[in-house]
C-alpha cells in the first residue's frame, strides 16, 4: 500500500526563539546567546574592535537585543537586525575608545613594559604568534564590506546564502566580496605565506 509523502514544514526555530526573547523568556535569551554568540563576535571583530574588547561590546549587544526584541516587527529578519545592533555597538565603542586615546596609550606603555619582563618565547612560538597576528592584522586592514563576509565565512563556515541573509546582500555580491577579500589578503600576506612555505621545505629537507 502506497503512502502519502511526508508533509514538509519550514519551521523557523530561530524566529520563534526571537519571539520568545521578545516575550522576556530568559531561557530563550540564554539559548540565543549560546547559539549565536560566535558570529556576532565576528561582526564586532569585523567592525574593528580588538579581540580583547569583544566581550564588552557583545554584552552591550545582548542588552539591546533583550530590551528591543519586542519592537522587531518581522522576526524572520532577526539576523540582519542583530547584525545592525552589533555594528552600531562596535562603532559606539570605537568612538568612545578614540576619545579615551590618551588613557589607552598609557595602558599600552604599561603593557609593553610587562611584556619585556616575561621570559622570551621560543622561536617557533614567535613565528606562530607573528603569523597569527599578521593574519589578523591583514583581515582588520580589509575594507569593511569585504571584511564582514570574510569573517563570517571563516568563523562560522556559513554558506553564501547565510552570509547574504545576515548582511542583507545578494548571494552574487557575497561571492564577489569573498573573491576580492582573498585577493587583497594574498597580496598583503604574500611574504608571510611564502616564508612559511620556505620553512616547510627546509624542515622536510632536514628530515
Amino acid at each position: 500500500m502506497g503512502t502519502q509523502p511526508a508533509v514538509t514544514i519550514d519551521f523557523d526555530q530561530e524566529s520563534l526563539l526571537l519571539e520568545a526573547v521578545a516575550h522576556a523568556d530568559a531561557q530563550a535569551m540564554a539559548d540565543l546567546m549560546r547559539i549565536h554568540g560566535r558570529w556576532i563576535r565576528g561582526i564586532i571583530l569585523a567592525a574593528g574592535v580588538a579581540p580583547g574588547d569583544l566581550e564588552d561590546v557583545l554584552q552591550h549587544v545582548w542588552m539591546v537585543v533583550w530590551r528591543e526584541a519586542r519592537r522587531l516587527e518581522d522576526a524572520s529578519r532577526w539576523r540582519g537586525w542583530v547584525c545592525s545592533i552589533a555594528r552600531n555597538s562596535a562603532a559606539d565603542f570605537l568612538r568612545r575608545q578614540a576619545r579615551r586615546r590618551r588613557g589607552i596609550l598609557s595602558w599600552l606603555r604599561t603593557r609593553r613594559h610587562d611584556t619585556t619582563s616575561r621570559p622570551a618565547p621560543s622561536t617557533e612560538a614567535v613565528d606562530a604568534s607573528e603569523e597569527h597576528e599578521a593574519v589578523l592584522q591583514a583581515i582588520r586592514s580589509l575594507p569593511t564590506i569585504y571584511r564582514e563576509p570574510f569573517v563570517l565565512r571563516h568563523l562560522e563556515d556559513w554558506s553564501y546564502q547565510e552570509i547574504g541573509r545576515t548582511l542583507g546582500l545578494p548571494v552574487d555580491t557575497v561571492e564577489t566580496r569573498l573573491v576580492r577579500a582573498r585577493r587583497l589578503l594574498r597580496t598583503r600576506l604574500e611574504d608571510k605565506v611564502s616564508g612559511h612555505a620556505r620553512r616547510k621545505h627546509r624542515a622536510s629537507d632536514q628530515s
Binding site: M33, R34, E131, V135, L189, E190
Partner: peptide, 28 residues
C-alpha cells in the same frame, strides 16, 4: 596554494581570537 594557506591561517586566527567563553551566559 597561497589562498588555501591564507584561508587556513585566517580560520585559525579568527577562531582563536574569538574563542567563545565557557562560562554560562549571564541573563540580562
Amino acid at each position: 596554494d597561497a589562498a588555501a594557506r591564507i584561508d587556513e591561517l585566517a580560520r585559525r586566527a579568527l577562531r582563536d581570537g574569538i574563542a567563545t567563553p565557557h562560562a554560562a551566559p549571564a541573563v540580562p
